[in-house]
Design a protein around this nucleic acid. Structure first.
Lengths: 191, 191
DNA sequence: CGTCTATTTGAATGTACTCAAAAGCGGTGG
DNA sequence: CCACCGCTTTTGAGTACATTCAAATAGACG
């Protein structure tokens, strides 16, 4: 499955494929189990084979802010911590039982040396991520909470089945109470 | 100058350096001149040698939202338009007389083929950009307008000399009127 | 110096938050 | 199978944050 994911973006010989597979480490998580905790150095980029994860930041006041989520066929990490090898400021936790394939920082650097096509692969991945982040920033600065909610569920129709409302609210930058009002309002509008 | 910028991130032979230089096109802009307009396909990644540019989105209501700005030694483009070669949804305009070095999409793809180190270069650039965007998203969802303003001027102390307040406001996702109030408030706090 | 645009100020309004309490829902154990 | 517990969502009221509109002031440019 992950090979398919990679081969959609770059071409690899059989030997290169084997090389890639050899550095992957499988990791299984139970619901509510942490993958990364604030203060850890994030050692891995994790590819989600199965399950659902959430990354979030806890501020001084103890408020929880959802930065990202990841479903099947997505990658997740604290990218700041991973790339700079500094302590994470974010937590990553499984919301469902999950199976991940992980790439360690050192192994990845070695892989870049040995199979330069992976530079390309990650460049393409970062580009795609950058485009999505750009759109999210635009939404944040140009839309109301209600509009951002509509855009989010339009983009990820299954999200509400997998992530509790309070986390959707924190992803949107609004409070759970306000999200509840938005939902009441929009369900009334449909009728 | 741009070579220095590249060589800080990757190693290149003299021939590779020459190859890179050969695909660059110089472009000069006057203040208020557009580099990209909504509807164009963004053909170039542009490196800023000198000057200052702003990218913004104009919504249905005619409101202007500043997505990015770029000063010396930064790159700017409509990344969605450039990478996917689709019409731009954003405008890019020079706020000061500017000198750019541009890389065309086709040339860049060819460069990736001929000098794979540039895959690495752009991967690193995208990673750095991703980290910055991530932080901006966190600020957007976790801070008030006043806090975002303080964080922005702390990060870019010279920004207020180069970009009018109404654009700083739209970058922060607030109105110019409200930014003016924030500034009044914080100048009073200092005393 | 006059014109144009940007910023400031003030007042009224709307958007989103806080706090508190009630209702709903899911899991667990009796 | 049902009752209870803990946690999430909903509801309501009051408040704070941020916007709109309009007018006044300040700055920039020719």
């Amino acid at each position: 499955m992950i090979l398919d994911h990679v081969l959609r973006r770059i071409e690899l010989t059989d030997a290169e494929q084997t090389r890639f597979i050899s550095i992957l480490k499988i990791r299984k998580l139970l619901p509510r189990q942490y993958l990364v905790q604030q203060g850890d150095v994030c050692q891995y980029e994790s590819y989600v084979c199965k399950g659902f994860l959430r990354s979030f930041y806890v501020d001084e006041r103890g408020n929880d802010h959802t930065l990202h989520f990841a479903m099947e066929d997505w990658w997740i990490s604290d990218s700041t911590s991973f790339h700079l090898q500094i302590p994470a400021t974010r937590n990553i936790v499984a919301l469902e039982a999950s199976v991940l394939l992980q790439v360690e920082k050192n192994d990845l650097e070695q892989l870049y040396q040995d199979v330069p096509a992976f530079e390309r692969f990650w460049r393409i991945l970062e580009q795609k991520g950058g485009i999505a982040q750009d759109q999210r920033i635009l939404n944040a600065i140009s839309m109301t909470g209600a509009e951002r909610y509509q855009a989010l569920i339009a983009k990820y129709p299954t999200l509400e089945q997998r992530m509790p409302q309070r986390h959707i609210a924190s992803y949107l930058g609004i409070t759970p109470v306000f999200l509840s009002q938005i939902r009441k309002q929009s369900s009334r509008d449909i009728k």
